[in-house]
Nucleic acid binder design. Structure first.
Lengths: 336, 336
DNA sequence: TTGTACGCGTTATCAG
DNA sequence: CTGATAACGCGTACAA
C-alpha cells in the first residue's frame, strides 16, 4: 500500500496539518520542520493522492475531450495541442471516442460527469441540444473546437470556413484559372460542408466567374473515396475544368489518385487544392497545395480557454484562427 | 453544487446506506424502497461521484497510456483500440505524450501515480530502467504495446518484427525478385530497427540471395524524408535493384515519391513494399503493398491484458500478434 | 509555529 | 430489510 500523509507526519513527528502545509507550500512552519518533513517524504517516497485531493478541492485537474473519430490525422493534431497545453497547466486529458453516436456521446458525458472533470472540449461535431443541456447541468466550462454552435452561446475555436474556402478559391483564380470546380463534402454539414461551398461560390461570384450546379460534385463525406468518385463526377459534369477545390485533403488526395488513373496530369492538366494541410499533403505526387488549418494551435487555444474559464474569466470570446495557404506543387500557374 | 447521496437519502426518507446498496445493486432492500430511492435519484438527477468512490475503493477506473508521438497514424490506431476496449470495460484513458523524453516521461509517471490510475500501457518505446522501477513501486499492471523489454518481465503485445520483415521480403522473392534492397530505419533501434533488418537478412539468406551492406540504406528514422533520401542512396549503392523493402510506410511513401522524381516507375521499374499498412497505403500512386500490423487489435488486446492483470490473473502471457500482407499494386510480379 | 478535528462523498461493517 | 458509523486520504478552520 502506498504511504499516506499520516505516515509522513508520524515519521517526521509532526501533525498531518503541517505536512499538508508544506506540501502545498503555504506558510506557517519553520525551516527546521520543513526539512524534517521533506526528508520523511523523501525516505518514504511519498506521493500525495490526487483522488483524495480532488474530493476535497472539488477539482480533479482533468479535462475530457470528445472526438467523433480518433484515428484521423486531424483529430490527433488537435489532441496533441490540447494535451500539451493541458499538461503544462497541470491537467490530464481523458479522450472519448464518440463515433458521432448520440448514445455513446451521452454515455461519455455521464462518465465525465461522474469523474468530475474540470472541463470539456467538444470537437468537430454539432453540439446537440441533449449534449448542451447535460453539460449545462454539469456546470463546468465547455469549449467547442473545430466546430461551433449557432443555437447555444458556447465559445469556440475554429477557422472561418467560408472565408478559408474563399481564400483557397481565390488562390486558384489568382493563378489564372477560370473553370474552377469543387468537390465538396456533405452539403448538409453546417460546419464543414455548407460554409466551404458558400465560400467557393462567393469567390467565383466576386470574380465574375461562372459556377452553377455542374461545377460542384457534392459527395457524402470528406474521405479519399469521395475524392476518387468526386473527380470522375466533376470531369463528367465539367469537362473543361482546369482547377478543383477539394473540401478536404483526403478528398484532394483521392482526386489526385483518380486523375492519375484517368491519365489526367496534375498539375499540368488539372490543378488541385486541398483543405486542412495534413501531413499527407507533403507526401503526394505532386505535393499538395492546401488550405492550412492550424490544428495544433487550435488545440492549444481550446485548452487555454478551458482554463481561463475555470479561472472565472466570465466571458471568453470565441477565437477565429487564421488560415493560410500551404503552397506546394499541385496548382499550375496559368499564363495569361 | 451537484447532489450527493445524502440528498437522495433525505429525499427518499432512507439512510445513505440503503441508497448506496441500490446504487451498487447489492441486496438488502424491498422493491418498495428501491422504487422510492430510484424516484428520488431521478428527480434530483443525481449522479454518483466517481472521485469519492475511487478514494474508498482504491480503484479509479482509469488507465494511463504513454505515447512517444501522438500525431502519427500508428499511435492513433493503437489509441482507438485501447480506448474502445477500456470504455467497454468501464474505464477511461488518460493520454500522455512523452516525446521520447525521459524527464517528461517521469513527470507523466508521477502524475499517473498521483492520480492512482489502475494500470499503464507503455507504447512504442524502450522501457528504461527508471520507468520500470517507478511503475514497479506504483504496484499496478503494466503492459507494453508495440514494444517489448528484454531486461524486465513485462507482458507485451506486438508483432514479431523479425518474422514480419521476413514475410515481407519473402513476398518479394516469391514475386520473382532477386535484387532486393532495403531502406531501414535506425539500426540502433532494438525494437523496430534491428529486427526488421535481421528479418530481411534471414530471408535473403534462406533463399540464397545476395545481401551485403550495399543492399541496405540505413537511415536515421522511419519518416517520409528517410524514404526519399533512402531511395536515392540505395539506387546509388545497388543500381540494378528491382524491389525494395521499406521499414515503414512513411519510408515507402517517401521512396515512391523519390522514385517518381527520378523517373523510376513503380512498380514497373521498381517494386516497393511498406511496413505498417497505415491508411496512407491506400492513397499512394500506386497503392502501396504493405506488411500489415493490426494496430487497432493490438490496442484492444493490450487494454484487455491490463484488465486481466487487474483481475488478478497472475501470469499473463505476452501476445505476438499476427502480421499479414496487404496486397496492393506497388509490387510487380516478375516473369520467370 | 503547530496540532485537533471536521468534512469532502462514498462504501462497508456492524448492529438492530 | 435497514440505519448508524467508521473508514478512504487529504485540506483547513480553529484552537493552542
Amino acid at each position: 500500500m502506498a504511504y499516506t500523509i499520516k505516515d509522513v507526519a508520524k515519521k517526521a513527528n509532526v501533525s498531518i496539518a503541517t505536512v499538508s502545509r508544506i506540501l502545498n507550500n503555504q506558510k506557517g512552519y519553520s525551516e527546521q520542520t520543513k526539512k524534517k518533513v521533506l526528508k520523511a517524504i523523501e525516505e518514504l517516497d511519498y506521493h500525495p493522492n490526487a483522488i483524495a485531493r480532488g474530493l476535497i478541492n472539488k477539482k480533479t485537474s482533468t479535462i475530457g475531450v470528445l472526438f467523433p473519430a480518433l484515428s484521423s490525422m486531424l483529430a490527433t493534431e488537435l489532441l496533441a495541442g490540447i494535451e500539451k497545453t493541458a499538461h503544462e497547466l497541470g491537467s490530464s486529458v481523458i479522450v472519448c471516442h464518440t463515433e458521432s453516436n448520440g448514445l455513446k456521446t451521452m454515455k461519455y458525458l455521464q462518465l465525465l460527469n461522474e469523474k468530475r472533470v474540470d472541463g470539456i472540449i467538444f470537437t468537430s461535431e454539432i453540439l446537440k441540444e441533449e449534449y448542451y443541456e447535460f453539460i449545462q447541468k454539469m456546470n463546468i466550462p465547455l469549449v467547442l473546437l473545430s466546430t461551433e454552435s449557432r443555437a447555444y452561446p458556447v465559445p469556440y475555436v475554429k477557422v472561418d470556413d467560408r472565408r478559408a474556402a474563399y481564400a483557397a478559391v481565390q488562390y486558384l483564380i489568382k493563378q489564372g484559372h477560370k473553370r474552377i470546380g469543387m468537390i465538396s463534402g456533405n452539403d448538409q454539414d453546417m460546419i464543414a460542408g455548407k460554409p466551404r461551398i458558400e465560400g467557393y461560390l462567393d469567390a467565383m461570384s466576386d470574380y465574375g466567374l461562372p459556377a452553377d450546379d455542374s461545377f460542384i460534385a457534392r459527395m457524402k463525406g470528406f474521405k479519399f473515396s469521395d475524392g476518387t468518385e468526386g473527380l470522375k463526377l466533376l470531369k463528367k459534369q465539367l469537362p473543361d475544368v482546369t482547377a478543383v477545390f477539394a473540401a478536404s485533403d483526403d478528398i484532394a488526395v483521392g482526386a489526385i489518385s483518380s486523375a492519375y488513373r484517368l491519365g489526367i496530369r496534375v498539375p499540368d492538366d488539372l490543378s488541385i487544392i486541398g483543405y486542412d494541410n495534413l501531413k499527407i499533403a507533403d507526401m503526394t505526387i505532386p505535393p499538395l497545395t492546401s488550405l492550412a488549418q492550424p490544428f495544433y494551435e487550435m488545440g492549444e487555444k481550446a485548452a487555454q480557454m478551458i482554463f481561463d474559464l475555470m479561472d472565472g474569466d466570465e466571458l471568453i470570446e470565441s477565437r477565429i484562427m487564421p488560415h493560410s495557404i500551404a503552397e506546394r506543387n499541385s496548382v499550375l500557374k496559368l499564363g495569361s
